[in-house]
Design a protein around this nucleic acid. Structure first.
Lengths: 152, 152
DNA sequence: TAAGATCACTTGCGTTTTGCAAGTTAGATT
DNA sequence: AATCTAACTTGCAAAACGCAAGTGATCTTA
């Protein structure tokens, strides 16, 4: 009479459910790297400047995969490399990530310039469309808009 | 020659900075309770249904206060009670919280109805304005729009 | 083709954070 | 005065994290 452990949720609130998937200090940084920096490999995430430990990075990548936020594939031209990419569910985090960025930039001292923040706030939809377009085209270039760096 | 520990940041990226403040599985739930449920006291947060341990709740409240996201005051009519409230910085989390809610509701099974999600997505700005207005008026009623419950 | 590099992880281990239960204190209620 | 309640603390075990050092498969170079 064994029953499944059935990973229990704290509640049915969407915010709570979201936080159970990405509510930690690393997951969204990986999503950011994939979404706007064009990073694709373990090594790139590792060297992204935030200082993740490799075991934590590995665990987060697995969790993001198991929750359907990212997907993986072995690199065609280098069998050692694993290429990570955002799924639809993953790219759908773009609005939340952008709002988090705007909030942080507005209330703390960060690398983002005031001009960049103003631009992001004013052209929110255009920026999101750009992010989505690059994702669709599998465009690995870091995000720019009108030839300017928009992302810190 | 003692120097301040000087809490060091991982990086100057606004996303990273934001996550250092609210990147855990509890902080944003407290913000949610304050923002849309009209909760004000320790006890209400404790009984919000997510199952926070009281020591964690206490610690998070202190952290949210120290980062300027919430403020406190002793209740005028009951000296035992501490009333918590969002600061401007705290209410500015509304867009991020909403996007997180929409994302979670779209990609996971939650308590939020499809209709409610559609409404929230379509009337995003109106909803945010409502949230801000209630905050300005210190209106403690749970969030409704057009007489309907919008929040799960 | 043999000897490194490189990439994507694991593993061990000590530290920190979390979760759970129980206790404490100031202020309210009866 | 005795009890109750709100908002915490405290203690302790368990889980998560951070760091350094491996490991194994796959290129690259001599």
């Amino acid at each position: 009479m064994l029953r499944k452990p059935k990973s229990k949720r704290r509640s049915g609130c969407p915010v709570s459910v979201s936080l159970e998937m990405i509510g930690d200090r690393w997951s969204l940084l990986i999503v950011r790297d994939l979404m706007v920096r064009g990073y694709r490999t373990f090594k790139e995430f590792e060297e992204s400047g935030e200082g993740v430990a490799t075991n934590i990075l590995s665990e987060r990548l697995h969790k993001l995969k198991s929750t359907g936020i990212i997907a993986t594939g072995v690199d065609a031209s280098d069998g050692r490399k694993v290429n990570y990419r955002l799924t639809q569910k993953g790219i759908d985090l773009a609005p939340a990530l952008l709002e988090l960025l705007i909030w942080g930039a507005r209330h703390e001292k960060t690398e983002a310039s005031c001009a960049a923040i103003a631009k992001m706030t004013q052209h929110r939809e255009a920026l999101l469309n750009e992010v989505r377009a690059r994702w669709k085209n599998n465009d690995p270039r870091p995000l720019q808009v009108n030839g300017h760096w928009v992302w810190p």
